[in-house]
Simulated assay, not measured.
Amino acid sequence: MDIRHEIAGWTTGGGAAPSEPVDSYTISTDGSIAVTVWSYGATLVEVLVEDNMGHPANVVKRLPDLAAYENRALNAYVGCTMGRFCRCVAEGRFVLDGVEYTLDRNEGLHHVHGGPDGFDRRVWRSRVEETQDEISVVFLLISPDGDQGYPGEVAVEAAYRLHESGRLTFEYTATTTAPTIVGLTNHAFWNLAGEGTIDDHVLAVNAARVLRFDDELIPMGGELSPVAGGPLDFRVPRRLGSTRVDNYLVLDGDRSWTAELRDPRSGRRMRVTTDQPGFGVYSGDWLAEPRTGLCLAASAWPDAPNLPRAPSVRLDPGTTYAHRTLHEFPPAVGTA
């Protein structure tokens, strides 16, 4: 295995913010996988995987340069680490221990994907960890008390770990100085063809229920609906076609598998397992280049701090938030 470090560029700054260098790391196995990550937003930039003819291609959506990642109009959170809480907090409010907290709003009345200056907008510190069979890039961030309205100073680590077998793991941990809420995820858009749209991809998700959303994609009190027979029924592998998806699928109890994606033409496959309660699944219909990637963001329930039925997202001093999601890329199958 090998790791290469470069400088991807310098941030433009803004206001009183100084320009900062952005680290780029590329980890490669002795086989057919190479992964590039940047310290800006702790972002997954590239995953090179071979097709059924042995030709490598990048299977995550990548923007042309650092300036594009900094430009909110061009960057729909592509590949970034989202936090302090991903997806949404309805009306930017939640109550913890009887105290109501008001978060910075960036989608009308709502707080979405960590707010206007979320973790995706920060330059993280970094370190490299190496073992005999795995190389990891670990990004580190301190989120101060009051950051985007959240209580407590939170220390966060986001690790990308590549095993010599080609297994790619996302690991997140966080600790806090005061009771708060935390929910982190990666927002990569996957395209196993390496180009074009995802319409011919085949998706399976081990989820029989979906959160009911209103017209603003806010959960309706935590109500769940069955997916059986509907457009979100991916319990059996199914071609995406033109189906528009922007929902949260609640995973079932059997965690031997959670999601699988494949591209029949290239033969590339991806299997995902996670310890999170569900996936935010988004078919990228509102990207600048629509449907050029499928987002499979393993995470807490959207608006979890306001939903009594949702698994807890509370983090207290002396405890550690932990999230682990694995991506495996079996050898490509079939012929082009």
Rank of each mutant, 00 (worst) to 15 (best):
M1R: 09
I7K: 14
A8R: 12
G14T: 01
G15Y: 12
A16L: 15
V22N: 08
D23R: 10
Y25V: 08
S28M: 06
T29M: 13
S32R: 12
V35Q: 06
S39G: 00
K61F: 13
K61T: 06
R62G: 01
L63K: 11
P64Q: 12
E70K: 10
E70I: 04
N71V: 00
A73G: 00
A76F: 12
C80T: 06
G83L: 15
F85P: 00
F85S: 02
R93C: 05
L96D: 08
V99W: 13
T102I: 11
L103M: 03
R105V: 01
N106K: 00
G108M: 04
L109I: 10
L109E: 08
H110A: 01
V112Y: 13
H113C: 08
G118H: 05
R125Y: 02
R127N: 03
V128P: 02
E129N: 08
T131F: 12
L140W: 06
Q148D: 06
V154Q: 04
V154R: 09
E157K: 11
R161D: 11
H163Y: 15
S165N: 14
Y172I: 13
A174L: 11
T175K: 14
T176Q: 13
A178S: 11
A178N: 13
I181Q: 14
I181T: 12
I181D: 05
T185V: 08
N186R: 10
W190T: 01
L192H: 06
G196S: 01
G196N: 00
D200I: 00
L203A: 00
L203S: 03
L203K: 05
A204G: 05
N206I: 09
N206H: 13
V210K: 15
R212H: 04
R212A: 09
E216Y: 14
I218K: 02
P219R: 07
E223H: 13
L224M: 08
A228W: 14
G229I: 08
G230I: 08
D233I: 07
F234T: 01
R235S: 00
R235T: 01
V236R: 10
P237A: 01
R239K: 12
G241P: 12
N247S: 05
L251Y: 05
G253A: 05
P264C: 07
G267I: 10
T273I: 15
P277H: 07
G278I: 12
V281P: 09
Y282M: 03
Y282P: 02
D285M: 07
D285A: 09
W286H: 11
A288G: 05
G293A: 08
A298H: 14
W301E: 01
R314M: 12
R314A: 13
R314W: 15
D316M: 15
P317T: 12
T319K: 15
T319M: 15
T319L: 15
Y321V: 07
A322G: 02
F329Q: 11
P331R: 14
